[in-house]
Write a protein that binds this DNA or RNA. Structure first.
Lengths: 142, 142
DNA sequence: GCTTGACCTCAAGTCGACTTGAACCGCTAT
DNA sequence: ATAGCGGTTCAAGTCGACTTGAGGTCAAGC
């Protein structure tokens, strides 16, 4: 039925991830060292699932290191607690983005002569600024 | 009553943006060349509004170049058409993130023995993968 | 038998958004 | 008058996630 092993090129085609990136992932420990036939790497077709998981994480805004933390080494099981934490982080980001989107839409339609005079937009700007200042202070604390 | 001009250090403190970053923004054309007193840059306190706008854009996931496109050179007026476009982009990103969040939460709670066997999670993974492959094909087209 | 194409390794380069370092200037407080 | 602070310039360094390039191996097809 389905092939037992596929080449790195085939994995690249199926996953949409460049071969060079796959080698990089291996080096980083995100995927297991592939079995070899001579020099050539051979992958089980199921590798694509783990790769999809990695891509998922990246789209969600996590670094490869963070993804590595969440992905256990064997198979592709996950730490459930970690997952909820990450989900919460994403939720916060969604909140932020929603604010931005509303701000932009409002700015696009608001007919105050300049945004300088639109109180709603001003509120958003002030909020943004406060966040930034707080963030910076946190950095200093360390 | 309020001061006419403030130093770069004061701007940094108020905006939460490092002085070095402010000089970088000037070089990039994101903020006007500050007026000088001798060598020293002097800013009108209102600069903080433009800076908040820049920070807002960054949080929304835009590069400095993209932000520069949207921000007109004078004052801090904006191109309204551009704004709606960006708002739409953000909305798409929110959709993506929502998908991820739901996926993660589901994975955290789902009691299929491994995520390999959870059809909902599988659907999300497949979707992620297809997106990635499409993206890659687009790259090749150019 | 020779080219072609897919694979390999290892080192170096890239990009964006800054930061850091060295070397210097000018004010003011001791 | 000198130390210290905050400003200045310019070049170089950093970080993450890869990509690119040089140089080499191996099997398949003409």
């Amino acid at each position: 039925m389905s092939e037992e092993f596929i080449s790195i090129g085939e994995v690249a085609k199926r996953s949409g991830i460049a071969a060079s990136a796959l080698r990089y992932y291996e080096e980083k420990g995100l995927i297991a060292h592939a079995s070899r036939q001579g020099q050539t790497r051979l992958y089980p077709p199921s590798i694509t699932e783990r790769l999809a998981l990695i891509t998922l994480g990246q789209h969600a805004g996590f670094s490869l290191d963070e993804i590595a933390e969440v992905l256990t080494n064997d198979g592709y099981e996950l730490d459930r607690q970690q997952l909820s934490n990450k989900a919460e982080e994403i939720d916060k980001q969604i909140q932020r983005l929603s604010l931005m989107r509303d701000g932009l839409l409002h700015a696009a339609n608001c007919n105050a002569p300049t945004h300088a005079e639109c109180p709603k937009f001003q509120r958003i700007l002030r909020f943004t600024q406060q966040q930034k200042v707080k963030e910076t202070e946190k950095q200093l604390d360390k």
